[in-house]
């Protein structure tokens, strides 16, 4: 049972990472990056690292996204690449 979930999460992690880097709207990057962090935290929970998963969910997916949205609010949202 384990490896199917693993594989699914792995694929989603990679696609989120690529999408976060490639998308042209920076707010979308912020959201995709949050999703990436959250999927990473799921992956770690599957691997038995619950404490790391907790920290990543709160600090990585939570605080980072807040920082990011705040920074976009102070700068510009659109980008050329």
């Amino acid at each position: 049972m384990g490896w199917q979930i693993d594989l699914l999460i792995l694929l989603m992690v990679i696609s989120c990472a690529i999408a976060a880097v490639e998308v042209k709207d920076l707010l979308a990057t912020a959201i995709l990056f949050g999703a990436y962090s959250f999927l990473m935290c799921l992956l770690w929970a599957v691997m038995g690292a619950v404490d790391v998963a907790f920290t990543e969910a709160s600090v990585g997916a939570g605080v980072s996204t807040v920082f990011f949205v705040g920074a976009i609010y102070h700068t510009r949202r659109r980008t050329k690449d």
Binding site: V21, T29, F33, A71, T79, K80, D81
Partner: peptide, 9 residues
């Protein structure tokens, strides 16, 4: 990437 925010990501 050309955009600095993208580089930070």
């Amino acid at each position: 990437k050309n955009n600095l925010t993208k580089k930070i990501v």
